[in-house]
Amino acid sequence: MGKSCCETNEQDDREANDPRWRRVLWLALAANAAMFAVEIGAGIAADSRALQADALDFLGDAANYAISLGVAGMAITWRARAALVKAASMLGFGLWVLGYAVYGLLAGATPEPETMGLVGTLALVVNVAVALMLFRFREGDANRRSVWICSRNDAIGNLAVLAAALGVFGTGQAWPDLLVAAIMAGLAIWGSAEVFVQARRELAHA
């Protein structure tokens, strides 16, 4: 049993120090930071809660990738603790977006569907490219899995933003934008729970 645990830890350490994994993280970090700048400006200009929520998600992901790079060569306990920090950030993002969607419902402003569609398409292309790069690294410790969950949720969120743009265009109302913002909040909260459970399990067995 002890030998099995040692072999598992050695495998985790090799995966954490994989140069291909680090390269992909750097590319993902750069892409997410750039898209945050693009999308936050477009979201404010278009008055879209969904775009602004997605922009903040890009920023959070860039920070998460930076954390993953920082702890990549450390022991499993440190990587698990970093995953707990990322789970907390995902939870915080989800709760913030949920509150912002409620505020948008009360404010009653209608976003611009054209800008939502254009920027949402660009964001989808970037997130799908990142998700494809990270797909081969989706298994492993909580730190690595949290990166995959973030990229997966981003691609799903961008499809939802495009659906919101169509909904706003078709109805002339804000509720599709607010609905998608709420869905993105739910994805973040669910993802944080997945990462938290695995990180706690790893800390317990470390």
Rank of each mutant, 00 (worst) to 15 (best):
residue 48 S to Y: 06
residue 25 L to N: 04
residue 44 I to Y: 10
residue 160 A to G: 04
residue 44 I to D: 11
residue 154 D to T: 05
residue 127 N to K: 04
residue 200 R to T: 14
residue 46 A to G: 03
residue 178 L to G: 02
residue 11 Q to C: 14
residue 70 G to M: 03
residue 38 V to L: 12
residue 73 G to W: 07
residue 182 A to K: 02
residue 60 G to D: 02
residue 177 D to K: 03
residue 162 L to Q: 11
residue 158 N to Q: 13
residue 197 V to D: 13
residue 103 Y to K: 06
residue 74 M to C: 14
residue 79 R to M: 05
residue 136 R to N: 02
residue 15 E to A: 14
residue 120 G to W: 10
residue 54 D to N: 06
residue 192 S to W: 13
residue 131 A to Q: 13
residue 118 L to C: 04
residue 30 A to I: 07
residue 166 L to D: 12
residue 44 I to F: 10
residue 95 L to T: 08
residue 54 D to S: 11
residue 33 A to R: 09
residue 104 G to F: 03
residue 74 M to G: 13
residue 163 A to I: 00
residue 144 R to Y: 10
residue 124 L to F: 02
residue 136 R to H: 07
residue 15 E to H: 12
residue 151 S to R: 04
residue 75 A to V: 10
residue 5 C to N: 15
residue 139 E to P: 09
residue 183 I to L: 15
residue 78 W to S: 13
residue 38 V to M: 12
residue 18 D to P: 00
residue 126 V to S: 06
residue 79 R to L: 01
residue 181 A to R: 03
residue 29 L to Q: 08
residue 173 Q to N: 08
residue 62 A to F: 04
residue 158 N to I: 07
residue 27 L to P: 00
residue 91 L to I: 05
residue 141 D to Q: 02
residue 199 A to H: 02
residue 25 L to E: 03
residue 117 G to Q: 07
residue 44 I to W: 08
residue 138 R to W: 05
residue 182 A to T: 11
residue 184 M to A: 12
residue 117 G to N: 00
residue 197 V to L: 10
residue 68 S to L: 07
residue 117 G to S: 09
residue 201 R to T: 15
